[in-house]
């Protein structure tokens, strides 16, 4: 057993969570990219002869109060929810990583100021602040991305800052300095690539959270706006029919859970794949 455990700690191991997670995420990405190939119906087509039909042969997930096919709507919504997962996180990741790298590398007054700003931002309850900013800017996906970019960079910045402070003490950083490389080249060509692993792992978890957050905001009416098909919006649509037509809300929820599940498994699998981190 201990031999197995030793192998498990080695880098590059493809673990079961990695496989399952990557598989689920890949399926959703393909579905999101080519919804037309998978959806049996037009997601927006009304069918007054098939209102609120229970799941059956013609409509595997049933139909909603306008006779729209739920399976097709869930499939088309995947496109939007994957977009939410990426756009809600990517700007925070870019900005936070660069800022954190600079802070960790240079330290000094710049780092002190950024750290104070982070202290101020983290003292606000995250979700409440996001909801507040979106409510101010007006409901909608674009404003949701703005709000998340404005707040969420903090997590990436803290993570990168700590990583760079660790990396810059290692021998190869000193070697690069002795070779006479410029600061920014050392930082972005040598240190940052070595510090990206925890960022990438956190990004997976963060995307899983973004899917949950995006659908929650869609449900609250602050995210994607109807008639756009988004999983949270679909659940909100079905809420009033839940006693009579449970399928309207239940299937989009299953979609959210599977994508979130896939992303967080992928994150776990990547931790194993990149090898257990050594702390000095």
């Amino acid at each position: 057993m201990s031999a197995v455990a030793a192998i498990a700690r080695r880098r590059g191991r493809i673990s079961l969570p990695l496989l399952i997670g990557a598989g689920i995420v890949l399926i959703w990405i393909v579905v999101g990219l080519f919804p037309g190939l998978f959806a049996p119906y037009d997601p927006d087509a009304f069918d007054y002869d098939a209102l609120l039909q229970a799941p059956g042969l013609a409509h595997p997930f049933g139909t909603d109060s306008f006779g729209r096919d739920i399976l097709s709507r869930v499939i088309w919504a995947a496109r939007l929810d994957i977009q939410i997962a990426v756009f809600s996180t990517i700007f925070a990741l870019g900005f936070g990583t660069v800022l954190g790298a600079l802070c960790g590398f240079y330290g000094g007054w710049f780092d002190a100021i950024v750290s104070r700003v982070i202290d101020v931002v983290v003292i606000f309850p995250f979700l409440v602040l996001i909801i507040a900013i979106i409510a101010f800017l007006g409901p909608g996906l674009f404003n949701m991305y703005v709000a998340l970019a404005a707040i969420n960079w903090v997590s990436y910045c803290k993570l990168m800052r700590g990583e760079i402070r660790l990396q810059k003490q290692l021998d190869y950083a000193a070697a690069a300095q002795v070779l006479g490389y410029r600061d920014l080249r050392i930082l972005f060509r040598h240190l940052v690539p070595n510090a990206m692993t925890p960022i990438v792992v956190f990004w997976m978890t963060d995307m899983a959270l973004a899917v949950l957050l995006g659908s929650s905001l869609g449900y609250l009416g602050l995210g994607a706006q109807p008639p756009e098909a988004e999983w949270g919006v679909l659940i909100a649509d079905g809420k009033n029919y839940i006693e009579t037509a449970w399928w309207m809300s239940v299937w989009p929820g299953v979609a959210i859970i599977t994508l979130g599940f896939g992303l967080s498994l992928l994150g776990d699998g990547l931790v194993v794949y990149f090898g257990k981190k050594e702390r000095s």
Partner: peptide
């Protein structure tokens, strides 16, 4: 628990309302 981690609060809430409360 991994599934629990991926379940949005509002969805669990709706399910509890329908399956348990109602």
């Amino acid at each position: 628990f991994q599934l629990g981690l991926s379940s949005p609060v509002f969805y669990i809430g709706i399910l509890l309302l329908t399956l348990v409360a109602a």
